[in-house]
Design a protein around this nucleic acid. Sequence first.
DNA 1: TAGTTAAAAGAGTTTTTTATCTTTTATTTT
DNA 2: AAAATAAAAGATAAAAAACTCTTTTAACTA
Lengths: 144, 144
Amino acid sequence: MFSKTCEYAIRAVLFVAQKSKDGGKVGVKEIAKGIDSPEHFIAKILQDLCKRGLMQSLKGPNGGFYMAIDNLKFSIADVVKAIDGDKIFSGCGLGLKQCSETQPCPIHNEFKKIRKDIYTMLETAKLGAFNDELERSLSFLKRN
Amino acid sequence: MFSKTCEYAIRAVLFVAQKSKDGGKVGVKEIAKGIDSPEHFIAKILQDLCKRGLMQSLKGPNGGFYMAIDNLKFSIADVVKAIDGDKIFSGCGLGLKQCSETQPCPIHNEFKKIRKDIYTMLETAKLGAFNDELERSLSFLKRN
DNA sequence: TAGTTAAAAGAGTTTTTTATCTTTTATTTT
DNA sequence: AAAATAAAAGATAAAAAACTCTTTTAACTA
């Protein structure tokens, strides 16, 4: 569904949202451990997310990654768009560039509905909405 | 959503289903043109689909690929399973191996529904069901 | 049976994705 | 101001996916 990079990105964003919710910052090492991802690889991804304004970072001692209030309003859909683009939300299921209402692929209409459902679901899932269940270990971002 | 290989596979299967519906056979060249794919690459994919029993082939003059009546009963879901495996039908949206009812990722339940919808849709789409609309140019397998 | 046709099989190559390592820059602490 | 910390940036490496080319095998045709 998503690229591996994007899966890491989503997990990282939810992790940082939860860990930084009281104003703290989280280092790459802690993030990598917390979501079970390669450290340097997630660092690159986080850099990218910062550039795109989805989260914040600060260098130096006591630095790290964190989310401001505004960042928490972003949704998982925004993360997916930032990393994988919007192919999954608007592309043709069979990979046809010209696929459209007038020149549909055989499964065009069926896919339209599914894509819309995916988008709605991911757009509804705001980044700050999972803090509680993560903290209470009702859901997880890595194997335990 | 699907790998490029899988997109080609689905398009090829629908193409062959339509072209061979009156007992004829279709060569790789014609298939590659018909679905706008690299010739040698689609040849490999077709080989694979034949091995897995999703379609038939015959060597020699007047040979080519074709679908028997039994093959038409397969669904697009079967093609996807053959090429991409069932990750998309059963894997975790965030790539977590241990994700389950007891150890769910944050979007586990939402994804469950979407995965089910995808499966239902692809399982319902039988390979022989598109011949008519393809023949009447109501849907397409490449740019025109 | 020899020649021709078309898929199967095998062996590459290229491109993209995923991952690692090193150096630089910004920030803080002493 | 010097040392320490942590992210940013850049360069490289490994693995997987996408694609190509050549040789072999099976089936038909003359």
